[in-house]
C-alpha cells in the first residue's frame, strides 16, 4: 500500500523565489502527495489546528519544505508547530497520533555545503542545526530522516541548474511513497541526498519529467 505524503511548504515571498518554486513544482502533483502552502492558506497566521491535525492523521510522511532562515524555518512553520503539535495529540500520554510517521526537512540554503561543518563559517552541520526538528520528531514518536538539502541555492544561475535537485526531490518523494527508500540508511545519513541515486543517474534513467 503506497504511503501518503504531506508537504508543508513555507515561503513568505514565493513570488521572489526561484529554486523553491521549481522544487515545489516537481513534487506537488505526484499522486499521493498533498501540498499545503502555509503562507497562502494562512496569510493572517490564523492556523486552523483541526484541519492541520486531520491532514497529519491522513498521511504517513510529513515533509517540511522551506528555505533555511537563520538556521531554522520561516516563521509560519514555527507557528504551525506551536499550534498543531498539541499536547494530547502529538505528545504526552495520550498524544500518540503521530507515532510511526516519518518527518523530513527539505531545505534550500544560500551557503555552500562546506560552510556547514565545524571548520566552516556556519560552524555546525545541518544535522546539528536541525536538531530541534529531530527532537520534535522524537518526542512525537516519529522517525526523523536526514534532510534533503539544496546548498548554494542563490548561485544556481538557471533552471537548468535547479533541475537535478528537483529530480532528486521528486525521486525522494516517490521512493517514500512506494516504500523503496532505505529508511534505516536515511535515518543515519548526513544528507538524504547521499542515500538517493546521483542526479546524473536519474537524468540518465529518464525518470525525470518536466515538472513545471
Amino acid at each position: 500500500m503506497p504511503k501518503r505524503v504531506l508537504i508543508l511548504f513555507a515561503h513568505p515571498a514565493l513570488e521572489k523565489s526561484r529554486v523553491n518554486r521549481y522544487l515545489a513544482g516537481a513534487v506537488q502533483n505526484i499522486p499521493g502527495v498533498t501540498f499545503n502552502d502555509l503562507y497562502e492558506v494562512y496569510p493572517d497566521f490564523q492556523i486552523d489546528v483541526a484541519r492541520e491535525q486531520e491532514l497529519l492523521l491522513a498521511h504517513d510522511v510529513v515533509v517540511l519544505q522551506h528555505p533555511f532562515y537563520w538556521y531554522s524555518s520561516p516563521a509560519i512553520l514555527k507557528e504551525w508547530q506551536d499550534l498543531v503539535l498539541e499536547h494530547g495529540f502529538a505528545y504526552g500520554t495520550d498524544g500518540t497520533a503521530l507515532r510511526g510517521k516519518v518527518l523530513l526537512n527539505v531545505i534550500t540554503t544560500a551557503g555552500p555545503q562546506e560552510a556547514y561543518r565545524p571548520e566552516g563559517y556556519n560552524r555546525f552541520t545541518m544535522r546539528h542545526l536541525l536538531s530541534p526538528f529531530e527532537q520534535t520528531a522524537s518526542l512525537c514518536g516519529m522517525r526523523y530522516l536526514a534532510p534533503l538539502t539544496v546548498h548554494r541555492a542563490l548561485s544556481l544561475a538557471s533552471l537548468r541548474d535547479v533541475e537535478p535537485h528537483a529530480l532528486l526531490y521528486r525521486r525522494a518523494i516517490e521512493s517514500l511513497i512506494d516504500g523503496s527508500l532505505d529508511l534505516e540508511a536515511a535515518t543515519r545519513a548526513e544528507r538524504l541526498n547521499d542515500v538517493l541515486p546521483a542526479p546524473d543517474a536519474i537524468v540518465a534513467s529518464g525518470t525525470a519529467t518536466g515538472a513545471l
Binding site: 513568505p12 515571498a13 521572489k16 523565489s17 544560500a110 551557503g111 560552510a115 563559517y121 548554494r152 542563490l154 548561485s155
Partner: peptide, 19 residues
C-alpha cells in the same frame, strides 16, 4: 525588501557570502 534575495544573490555571485 522583505525576503528579497537579490543582494544575497549578488554576494553569492561574488563569493563573499560569509562572516
Amino acid at each position: 525588501a522583505a525576503w528579497d534575495n537579490e543582494p544575497l544573490r549578488e554576494e553569492a555571485a561574488k563569493g563573499t557570502l560569509r562572516r
